[in-house]
């Protein structure tokens, strides 16, 4: 089987990470999960072939945006997942290089469509 595209999922909530791994795994993606900023840093330090990142900002402080800048610097496209509809979050997300901002709860089909288009499939 061909290499599965690697997706980085960042979420403070481990149950959310499990579900994302499960849903995206079914669709043929490989998931690497990070539940804290430390884990996020570790992954960014080690993994080079991340094709896409999904960042749920709920539970993180403002320093999450620094990591987003790092993603931008490494040319990894990423999507911000926001706990609520908020113009401020949307603005901040796009300002730090996000390709899009999604509001929870996500519709699985919509998320998959967005991932596919960002991966150029």
């Amino acid at each position: 089987m061909a290499d599965k595209p690697l997706i980085l999922a960042v979420d403070h909530n481990r149950r959310n990470l499990e579900l994302m791994s499960q849903f995206l795994g079914q669709e043929g993606y490989e998931i690497i999960a990070a539940a804290s900023l430390e884990e996020f840093d570790q992954v960014l330090g080690k993994q080079a072939d991340i094709k896409l990142a999904l960042v749920d900002i709920a539970g993180f402080d403002r320093s999450v945006w620094e990591r987003c800048e790092r993603l931008r610097a490494e040319n990894i496209p990423f999507i911000i997942i926001s706990p609520r509809q908020s113009a401020a979050i949307q603005q901040a997300g796009l300002a730090h290089g996000a390709r899009g901002v999604l509001v929870k709860p996500l519709a699985v089909k919509e998320l998959l469509g967005l991932i596919r288009s960002l991966l150029g499939e």
Binding site: N13, R15, M20, P105
Partner: peptide
């Protein structure tokens, strides 16, 4: 007992 419940997808989907 699961402290963390999901909120990323709607219950209908999960």
């Amino acid at each position: 007992a699961q402290v963390e419940t999901y909120d990323i997808f709607s219950p209908a989907e999960v």
